[in-house]
Amino acid sequence: MRFLPTAIAGAFIVEADPREDERGSFARTFCAKLFADQGLPSHYPQCSISVNHKRGTLRGLHYQKEPQAEAKLVRVTRGTVFDVAVDLRTESSTYLQWTAVELNAVQRNALAIPAGCAHGYLTLEDNCELYYHLSKDYAPDLAGGIRWDDPLFAIDWPFAPIVIGARDAAYPSYRQEIVR
């Protein structure tokens, strides 16, 4: 595996390093020791799948508040998405910055997102599926969200979403969220 730093402190693009032969290929996608060596979680007690039927589906920007702030390892198992992390950690050197990567099933790349960051994505084709490793159990009462188009972050999405859930569309701006 290769760990490529992003614009967000502690966030990495994780690339598989497949070994190929006449049968096909084989690659590790997670190794506790290698993740720990990068300062990433080496234990993920929860995994989830997100299925998205239509190109232009937006989910996010989601995060969990302390004490259940969760790190995520996000991988696409079908299709292609524009995956975004926004640093909401006030003590971070990259506070309020964002990073994005195109994740797709062909490359088998992933994005490791530190706890304290918001996450969202936009599907770039129909029938996308994502597989998440989560460092904490989901706590609905600590779930938070901010607007995908918050001008404070000025995320350069490839295009405006076509499908967005009511909850995601109603999220406040970050400045409104932190004063609640």
Rank of each mutant, 00 (worst) to 15 (best):
G165K: 04
Y63C: 05
W98G: 04
A160Y: 08
I155A: 04
L58Q: 08
C117K: 03
G60Y: 00
F153D: 03
A160K: 15
R23N: 05
T57E: 06
L58A: 06
D137K: 13
A154M: 10
D21G: 10
E15V: 08
F12N: 05
L130W: 06
Y138V: 11
A11M: 08
I113L: 01
I178D: 05
V106G: 07
P114C: 08
R55F: 02
L142I: 09
P140C: 10
S50V: 11
R59P: 01
Q68E: 11
F3E: 02
A9W: 03
F30N: 06
L134Y: 08
G165M: 07
S25L: 14
G56P: 10
R78P: 02
I164C: 12
E125C: 14
V163Q: 11
G56C: 06
V106S: 13
S25Y: 15
P45F: 10
T57S: 13
E102H: 13
A139S: 13
V76I: 14
D141E: 15
D137G: 13
P5L: 07
A7I: 08
I8V: 13
A169E: 11
L4I: 15
G144Y: 00
A100V: 01
E177Y: 15
E22H: 13
G39E: 11
I178K: 14
A32L: 04
V106Y: 05
Y63M: 13
E15F: 06
P158L: 06
P172C: 04
Q68F: 15
I8D: 01
K72A: 04
A110G: 12
Q64C: 11
A69D: 11
P45S: 09
D156Y: 04
P161D: 07
F35T: 01
I164H: 01
F12C: 04
C117A: 12
L152R: 12
S48F: 04
P161V: 03
A36T: 10
D37L: 08
G120C: 05
G165H: 06
A105E: 13
Y171W: 12
G39I: 06
P140T: 04
R23W: 03
I146F: 00
L111G: 00
E129Q: 14
V14A: 04
Y95D: 08
L134E: 11
S42K: 10
A110D: 01
I49R: 13
V76K: 05
V84F: 01
Y95A: 08
A170C: 04
I49L: 15
A100P: 00
R28T: 12
A9E: 15
W157K: 03
G116R: 03
A118N: 05
R78Y: 05
G56A: 09
E91Y: 06
A69C: 08
T99N: 09
W98V: 07
I8M: 11
I178F: 07
K54D: 12
Y174S: 02
L122M: 05
F3Q: 03
A160M: 13
T94Y: 06
G144H: 00
A105W: 09
P67G: 04
S25D: 09
W148C: 00
